[in-house]
Design a protein around this nucleic acid. Structure first.
Lengths: 227, 227
DNA sequence: AAGTGGTCTAGACCACTCC
DNA sequence: GAGTGGTCTAGACCACTTA
């Protein structure tokens, strides 16, 4: 009995409603006995189902079938270059603006910056086969990534530079739909008011904010994944 | 040495660039020896890091640090009612349309339906504190969920009914931004052309398509998560 | 206080894949 | 063919939580 088979069997009992939502299922030891395997194997199977949101586990409380499981999707947000190349298009980018200025309060807040220091502000247009694909508006705190100031961002986009040099970080990400303002519309070569897919990301390393970025995708862009 | 500490230590060696992207790291047995724990513990730690996308593992090939890790987010898509109540608003829904008709080819294709059978088509408006929040346009194959035909969908929304009665299923999900057409705009009480956040989901049970749904969110809606 | 899941261990065998 | 990760086992102790 492999843990995958145990998992499949438990999954079946839930879908077949032998174990109803909200109900407790047998404890690991009993399941191990019934299925003829060790408790470790049962543990691994149940742990996997709990990570998927189908089971809820508590010490002493036992394991229950989740009442209303939220659909869970694993989203993978690749580099913009990879995203474009995956469509079979040629990637290019253009730096539209690069300046070191005081940042708006909203940016300072989301990065957790309290003083008045100037941040690096970058506006980059990413192109697929020469057509505007996404406009990147990014603020970077040079205190956390000083070497970025010397980087040749015409060759490597900030996006890629950061992933390569600060690969591991935690952050928030948000998706929304926004009507294009005049400036953005003109850069993306769409009508003002067009529905843009917007991704906002704030990235942290330990306790200090590194960068926050606003991505405005050309209409038609989709983010797809599997449940 | 717990597996979480092993994981943290390996994570540190990657962030500190002791192990560079693309490089192989020591084999499990050696790490176990060095860190003073059993191989199982190292295995669990490395497996976790691989699931996060930081490591790539292959039998015989060993374990390598991922070159360009894609940001990975776990997205949880809750019931619309839960979503609204989480904002502190009162939930309500209204069934705008309920009919049994032949479906458009696009719907038949995504559900994998080959014959001409009529599907259940439902249009439901979900309200937060009485204000339109999201418009749900859904097709259900009654062959896979026959009992839905007798459900009282004025009391329980289709959305919720399906989650409760067909809780376990796989599916695709896509996010995009779309300009509101006249009909949708009037229902959501926004200007035609407004930027709507759109979620499209197709849900399967085993090999048969259950339902496909198109959700048009009122402008301002955001989907947030953590990397 | 006691029951349940969380984890660690040491050892074993197996499956994959690179050389 | 051989090296590496994948997994199973039996037993043990611990941490949390609820009854």
């Amino acid at each position: 009995m492999t843990w995958q088979r145990v998992r499949a069997e438990v999954h079946r009992r839930i879908t077949d409603r032998l174990w109803l939502p909200g109900e407790s299922i047998p404890i690991e030891a009993d399941l191990a006995l019934e299925l003829g395997c060790s408790r470790s194997t049962v543990n691994r199977a149940l742990r996997a189902l709990a990570e998927e949101g189908l089971l809820e586990r508590r010490r002493k409380g036992g394991t229950r079938v989740t009442k209303t499981p939220a659909a869970r999707a694993k989203l993978s947000v690749p580099l913009i270059r990879i995203e474009i190349e995956a469509q079979g298009a040629r990637y290019a980018h253009r730096v539209l603006r690069r300046e070191r200025i005081r940042s708006p309060a909203t940016v300072r807040t989301s990065l957790g910056i309290t003083d008045e220091r100037r941040l690096l502000h970058l506006e980059t247009l990413h192109l697929a086969d020469g057509c505007p694909f996404v406009l990147e508006d990014r603020w970077v705190d040079p205190l956390t990534v000083p070497s970025l100031l010397e980087a040749d961002l015409e060759r490597i986009s900030v996006n890629e530079w950061l992933v390569a040099h600060v690969p591991l970080s935690r952050g928030d990400i948000a998706f929304s739909a926004v009507a294009a303002d005049a400036a953005t519309a003109s850069i993306l070569e769409v009508e003002p008011g067009a529905a843009l897919f917007v991704v906002e990301r704030t990235t942290w390393r330990d306790e200090s904010g590194i960068t926050c970025v606003h991505l405005s995708y050309r209409p038609g862009h989709r983010v797809e994944t599997t449940l």
